[in-house]
């Protein structure tokens, strides 16, 4: 049975790993930055956080959450004074790979598969091979047909583009570097709600480019 996930960071994780071997498709730090942005995106999409004067703030009256999102909220709330987006991308980026993977294991989307070779780490692979394919196929179809993208899909497409997964992921061959598709995505992101999600994406792009330029990927 296909176990689906509708969370931004989960979807990005699935796209950023090989569906059969579980091997990462992105360098560690770049994947971490993008997954951190996806986690902040999840909170932004549900209205739990906002960005004010470049700093991430927890919206007053937000109900406490549990699990990974709860932990992220807790870190954001405890930190005084509030910090800029880039600090949080770096901070959550340090562990985002592992924590999002754990969440996917807990929800049954990923399963642990011991390696056949000795001394090799346990691999995390999708319980259903189609999990990642469904995420990619839905997104690509929406982009190719210039359908109206929901904010979550637009964020996912933006993060896929920021990490350049679209350049090398086989499922994205139809949309890579297509001016019409890119323009549709740009137009959607320019009007995304809440608007700070657009800023979150731009900060992620800058953080990734900066990591590349300083050879720390």
């Amino acid at each position: 049975m296909l176990v689906r996930t509708e969370r931004l960071a989960d979807e990005l994780y699935l796209l950023a790993h090989d569906e059969t071997s579980g091997r990462p498709l992105l360098p560690d730090r770049l994947a971490g930055l993008a997954l951190a942005a996806a986690l902040l995106g999840e909170l932004g999409l549900t209205g739990l956080i906002a960005v004010r004067d470049g700093n991430v703030v927890v919206v007053e009256g937000s109900l406490p959450e549990i699990g990974l999102i709860g932990n992220v909220m807790c870190d954001l709330e405890v930190e005084k004074p509030p910090r800029p987006v880039r600090d949080w991308l770096e901070y959550f980026g340090q562990h985002a790979n592992r924590s999002v993977a754990s969440r996917l294991v807990a929800s049954g989307v990923l399963v642990r598969r011991p390696s056949r070779l000795p001394l090799r780490p346990v691999r995390l692979v999708p319980a259903d091979l189609n999990s990642a394919a469904v995420v990619a196929a839905t997104l690509v179809t929406d982009l190719v047909r210039s359908r109206r993208l929901e904010a979550r899909s637009a964020m996912l497409a933006g993060l896929v583009r920021a990490t350049r997964l679209d350049r090398d992921h086989p499922m994205f061959f139809e949309v890579r570097d297509q001016p019409a598709v890119q323009q549709h995505l740009d137009a959607t992101l320019a009007e995304i709600s809440p608007p700070f999600l657009g800023e979150l994406l731009r900060q992620t792009e800058a953080a990734i480019a900066s990591a590349v330029a300083t050879h720390r990927i």
Partner: peptide, 18 residues
């Protein structure tokens, strides 16, 4: 590399006016 963070998002014209 930081230029992405400082770009002002603009609404692009529809694809047919690409």
């Amino acid at each position: 590399p930081e230029s992405a963070a400082h770009r002002v998002p603009v609404f692009s014209p529809p694809a047919n006016l690409a």
